[in-house]
Design a protein around this nucleic acid. Structure first.
Lengths: 221, 221
DNA sequence: AAACCCCTTACGGGAATCCGTAAAGGGTTT
DNA sequence: AAACCCTTTACGGATTCCCGTAAGGGGTTT
């Protein structure tokens, strides 16, 4: 089993629950933090001391308080530590059950496990920890269809950018101008229209408003 | 202090944390459920037995599982029990920190307290319980500006309906037709345009897409 | 009754969108 | 080099949205 694990979770009682679980699993060195920034510093420290953490279990949403944070969310933390300490294993433990954020965590940041906080959350977390230890991955049943082929929509970063700009109030013409300025291709109004039309069809949206509402609900933006 | 309290919360560890808190506060009869439907049944039962609960502490989001539920969310539960057992006090304990849902709980359902799950969640919950016992209300500091006069936007149910229909893909003309059919006034396209224009100004939205994106983020729809 | 206010409705023009068709450019195949 | 495919760009018309102005209708005030 893992010898050294870090828990990043801002709610005390859950933090405690996970700690208890790890103890039962026989992890000798368990450390806890309630802020993402503290998590990063502890990990950094452990590497410098040549006694690195083997696993990080982190939440996604950390409530903001008086302390200003460099890494405001679990995702920002995961992105940072995975880019700097690529071998460090990460399991995300969150209430988030929208598929797209989960997909991003696996595809972009290569986490080892995703567990939804729910009635059987700790049970699934156990499975995820074992999977990570065996160097495989684990996906909570609530979001198990995040990678099912049926709804594997082919949405790329360009699409996301388009939808994001739309939802931020830019007109298609303004987006076109922006992309030309930043040399993002395709940038023509016509191409943008075409792409948005494709997205409308994919998501069964009647119009652009509907489309943005749908992808916001899905967590794409 | 209260003599009989019900906790409705689907996550075991949090449920346990609240239970511990109530025990420390000296509540002799504490009951727990993990499903909204069970909560309703327990409350109903207690009234029929002439030994009613004095307080319900409930979460808002309950993860769906195999059991199909009549009341899928905490809000549905609150609406039901507040309409049927008007004297029963309710405190909502949730991670939700968007202002509009909180406003709705107080204005429409007249709950006694709202506490955000956070680092100091249990501490604030204590205050809320005392406030409810004194028959006053408590509002968690994270959402304390839900009723501050500055951002007290005058949004009524008609506005919400409008935005909801928009986000569901109806064109303004379709909404007009719908309202005429259902005898909702004003129903003319022109009046709908005017109202949406007012909303765009209120929310600093560039266009209808932007507007829907903003109000979705705020939790209005 | 006339004047007034407020809300709803109506109309029109300009802008943005939706949607189809077609041309231009780049790269590969034959 | 010609033929081909694929992506990007361009253009035109139909529809919808955006925004100003103005007319209608009910209720209250003078």
């Amino acid at each position: 089993m893992f010898k050294k694990v870090l828990i990043a979770e801002d709610m005390e009682d859950i933090n405690k629950g996970v700690h208890t679980l790890l103890t039962e699993l026989g992890v000798p060195d368990i450390q806890q933090v309630q802020y993402c920034d503290d998590a990063y510093l502890k990990i950094k420290r452990s590497v410098l001391d040549n006694d690195p953490f083997e696993l990080v279990i982190t939440d996604l949403s950390f409530k903001a308080d008086h302390r200003s944070q460099k890494y405001p969310s679990g995702e920002a933390l995961v992105e940072k530590i995975k880019s700097e300490f690529t071998t460090l294993k990460v399991i995300v433990y969150s209430v988030e059950d929208r598929l797209q954020p989960v997909r991003n965590l696996f595809n972009k940041h290569h986490i080892h496990g995703y567990v939804c906080k729910s009635r059987s959350g700790l049970k699934n977390l156990t499975k995820a920890i074992h999977a990570a230890y065996e160097n495989t991955t684990y996906l909570s049943p609530e979001v198990s269809n995040a990678f099912s082929s049926t709804n594997n929509l082919e949405i790329d970063d360009y699409d996301i950018s388009l939808l994001d700009n739309l939802s931020n109030g830019l007109s298609q013409e303004e987006i076109s101008a922006l992309y030309k300025k930043h040399h993002i291709s395709p940038a023509s109004l016509s191409a943008i229209e075409k792409r948005l039309n494709k997205l409308r069809i994919q998501f069964n949206a009647n119009n652009a408003i509907h489309l943005v509402a749908i992808v916001k609900d899905l967590g794409l933006i």
